[in-house]
Design a binder for these strands. Structure first.
Lengths: 191, 191
DNA sequence: CATTTCCCTTAACATATATCAAGAAGAAAA
DNA sequence: TTTTCTTCTTGATATATGTTAAGGGAAATG
């Protein structure tokens, strides 16, 4: 059950011994979400960092009744409303799942306990924070420096699984344009 | 000289002893930048995380000859092209200073050495990464959920020093609009 | 003190992109 | 199968925001 996430932590913490892993493992919580259900609602405090074991999760703002997606995580990837998680303050975004999903949650209090328990866990926390920073930073770079066409092209070339698993109108909001406009861009690109 | 940054590290690492501080201090590098000079050029590898001792630094993309600002740091704040720093890959943004600036740099190799030296430093690394994540995440939230007017209003209410120290056309790009448009927004707001 | 440079404003105009509305095509449900 | 959703497409229209250009004032420079 925990094979995938264990490999992930071994990458994060080169010095992860069997004992240290067991200490971590017993704090992990397996959570199952049926397609369409919420992991975290905007305004609530995000309870954890979720390692997606199986399925597909989504992070999005709701602005004037409309959803603006900012990220997706598939099997083997992490997702969290990390600002809310870190600062234990109300989440600006919601998280839900687009498919039946199994997530492994490392809750906030458990993470703090680990930090106090042994300093190596700090290293995992640091690398998770660093990885999430790089993700959001590059997302930002694309939004600010690429044209809508090039942002879509980026998804084709680097996140093709999203095109197969995510409705096009959600990708439009990820790119920062309307669904109609993405449809026209696609039409132009096939020519 | 190192008073400001020491206080900052004491916040990050509650367990920072005199000895641990000395170990850190001897790895810090004081750097002076005259107004207008570059700390890091786009395409280069960002050499460090810079604690601004005195002055004002800026982070910005250059797209088709135009500059798009994404962040500023004044005295007592940090700045870095952190993606480049973490991954030791070419920077997407440049960093320069808008005023004569004294920065205290913790270079990448020195930071790695500290991590190996004692695990408490991991805690500082983690918190720096977490803080920078929260900063960029909230910047993102503002860009994606607020109108240009409200983004400018946010600066007035929460970063008023920028209005006093940064040219308006740079704030326009921080907000994600043209200088002319910001000028019109300001005119409308005074009424 | 003159002069140059930088920055802000304003107006006219251009345009990318959003919005609105309708229909088609699949996919899911009954 | 038929029906009902959901998603995607397409066209007509609207609009926010960008672009270009010009002038003025403040600040830096010599």
């Amino acid at each position: 059950m925990f094979d995938g996430i264990r490999k992930y932590y071994e990458l994060l913490i080169p010095a992860l011994t069997e004992l240290l892993w067991q200490e971590l493992e017993k704090r992990l919580v397996i959570e199952r979400y049926p397609k369409g259900s919420l992991i975290c609602r905007e305004g609530d405090i995000c309870k954890g960092v979720y390692f997606i074991q199986e399925g597909l999760a989504r992070l999005y703002y709701t602005v004037e009744g409309r959803e603006i997606c900012t990220g997706f995580a598939k099997e083997g990837e992490y997702l969290s409303e990390y600002d809310s998680f870190l600062t234990q303050s109300p989440a600006a975004q919601s998280m839900d799942v687009l498919e039946d999903t199994i997530a492994i949650n490392l809750p906030f209090e458990q993470m703090q306990t680990l930090y106090e328990h042994a300093p190596v866990y700090e290293q995992a926390g640091r690398k998770i924070a660093e990885n999430l920073f790089v993700l959001i930073s590059r997302y930002n770079t694309r939004l600010l420096t690429l044209s809508p066409e090039d942002r879509y092209q980026y998804i084709i070339e680097n996140q093709y699984h999203l095109i197969q698993r995510v409705p096009q109108y959600m990708l439009a909001s990820l790119i920062g344009i309307s669904p109609e406009h993405l449809s026209r861009i696609r039409k132009k690109m096939t020519r």
